[in-house]
Amino acid sequence: MNARILLLLLWPFAVSAQGFAGLGTGTDGFSTPQQPAIFDFPADHGPHDDYRIEWWYLTANLTAEDGTPYGLQWTLFRSALTPDGGEGWSSPQLWMGHAAVTTPDAHFVTERLARGGIGQAGVTADPFEAWIDDWQLVGDDFDTLRMTASGPDFAYDMGLRAQGPLVFHGDAGYSVKSAQGQASYYYSQPFYDIEGTLTLPDGDVVVSGQAWLDREWSSQPLSDNQTGWDWFSLSFEDAKLMGFQLRQTDGTAYTSATWIDADGTTTPYTDGAFSAQPLSVSSVAGREIPTLWRVLLPDRDLDVIVQAINDQAWMDTSIPYWEGPVTVTGTHAGVGYLEMTGYE
């Protein structure tokens, strides 16, 4: 049997399960996030094999020398088949990598799949190294990184340098995802400066901009009635905002947000304080996807329009979703990234 097909058959998200992509499945002996959240760095930049699901998720808003906007994504997912350990091919760890580049006119995406325990993919904390095949996100520490990836029709080689502290979402990194109490550990480094070269079909493009890296792990981050999410990371001149809504089968949504000041000071917002309202949809991969949004956070007098740079930024991967760069106008101006899952 083709190894790719076998891996997809084994991948927990690809099978029938509760909640979007199986993320509402029971914990089944895996560890679960607890309060108070206690972090240990640099160790927590590395993997947590006793949790079912984990990711290292980087997005970047870039600009070329001629002013053209670009978006970039580098993501490594780890998932465990069982909470038990194992060596070599008996390791229960599975890995999936996504890389993408978005331009105003095109969206390039590719995927890698790997088994754990055989050196094909993994993460080490100190020095930091995350890889799948020849894709790498590496550095002597988490503040200064080099990132590479390639696909059939694109590649990139980027350098990143943090200009601010890590930030922690929810209750000091304990991020509640539902009224039933499902949660994850969730922190970000949203202050990277990034520069490097995109290799596209028309040639190399030198770019620079801002990048945002999310770290999250859990064993049951969603409830069984949550069908997908709309996640926003927005950067303004003097602040940043992370906000998400988890759509539910009864038509309501569970929301959470973090306001991030320029010095890294955070203010968390619980369910109901943040809202995102779709204003128009685009036909994307045979689906109707909202690509123009009104986002509100009244406590910060924020009322903005979030618009996709390219409404066709569809991630045609094993678990398909929409992910792409956006512009922000209204009471606050800026750029950011939008991820939307669960649109059938």
Results as ranks from 00 to 15, higher is better:
residue 139 G to L: 12
residue 170 G to Q: 05
residue 251 G to M: 08
residue 343 Y to S: 01
residue 209 G to Y: 06
residue 59 T to D: 12
residue 194 I to P: 01
residue 274 F to H: 05
residue 9 L to I: 01
residue 128 F to K: 04
residue 103 T to C: 06
residue 294 R to Y: 06
residue 200 L to D: 06
residue 153 D to P: 03
residue 315 M to R: 04
residue 156 Y to T: 04
residue 314 W to G: 14
residue 55 W to G: 13
residue 218 S to N: 13
residue 97 G to D: 05
residue 221 P to R: 07
residue 142 F to G: 00
residue 61 N to P: 07
residue 265 T to E: 13
residue 166 L to M: 13
residue 254 Y to Q: 09
residue 336 G to D: 07
residue 70 Y to G: 05
residue 209 G to L: 01
residue 175 S to V: 07
residue 260 I to K: 02
residue 268 P to T: 14
residue 33 P to Q: 05
residue 229 W to I: 04
residue 129 E to Q: 15
residue 104 P to D: 11
residue 189 Q to Y: 00
residue 138 V to A: 15
residue 103 T to S: 15
residue 87 E to D: 13
residue 296 L to R: 15
residue 74 W to F: 06
residue 130 A to S: 12
residue 188 S to H: 00
residue 152 P to R: 13
residue 90 S to K: 11
residue 284 V to Y: 03
residue 333 A to T: 13
residue 322 W to Q: 00
residue 280 S to L: 07
residue 31 S to V: 02
residue 249 T to W: 01
residue 312 Q to G: 09
residue 25 T to E: 15
residue 147 M to Q: 09
residue 342 G to V: 04
residue 99 A to F: 12
residue 29 G to C: 07
residue 228 G to P: 02
residue 305 I to L: 14
residue 311 D to E: 14
residue 86 G to T: 07
residue 97 G to F: 08
residue 146 R to P: 01
residue 144 T to M: 02
residue 78 R to K: 13
residue 158 M to R: 02
residue 153 D to L: 11
residue 206 V to T: 13
residue 337 Y to V: 00
residue 8 L to F: 06
residue 64 A to R: 12
residue 16 S to A: 15
residue 246 L to Q: 03
residue 11 W to H: 15
residue 63 T to F: 10
residue 44 D to E: 11
residue 237 E to V: 11
residue 161 R to P: 00
residue 341 T to G: 10
residue 99 A to R: 06
residue 116 G to Y: 06
residue 28 D to N: 14
residue 203 G to I: 02
residue 111 E to H: 12
residue 197 T to G: 05
residue 276 A to S: 14
residue 60 A to T: 07
residue 70 Y to Q: 01
residue 139 G to S: 13
residue 306 V to W: 08
residue 278 P to V: 08
residue 224 D to G: 04
residue 43 A to L: 11
residue 255 T to S: 14
residue 233 S to I: 05
residue 87 E to R: 10
residue 46 G to C: 12
residue 114 A to P: 09
residue 262 A to T: 13
residue 234 L to E: 03
residue 317 T to H: 10
residue 89 W to R: 09
residue 163 Q to Y: 01
residue 142 F to T: 00
residue 28 D to R: 15
residue 84 D to E: 13
residue 93 Q to P: 00
residue 5 I to C: 09
residue 106 A to R: 11
residue 118 I to L: 07
residue 238 D to E: 15
residue 220 Q to H: 05
residue 150 S to Y: 06
residue 182 Q to D: 05
residue 221 P to S: 08
residue 85 G to W: 00
residue 147 M to R: 01
residue 331 T to M: 05
residue 31 S to M: 10
residue 228 G to W: 05
residue 317 T to V: 15
residue 258 T to A: 14
residue 172 A to E: 12
residue 43 A to M: 12
residue 81 L to F: 07
residue 200 L to C: 10
residue 185 Y to V: 02
residue 267 T to H: 14
residue 127 P to V: 10
residue 162 A to H: 00
residue 76 L to P: 08
residue 284 V to C: 04
residue 292 L to C: 12
residue 288 E to S: 15
residue 229 W to M: 09
residue 169 H to L: 11
residue 199 T to F: 11
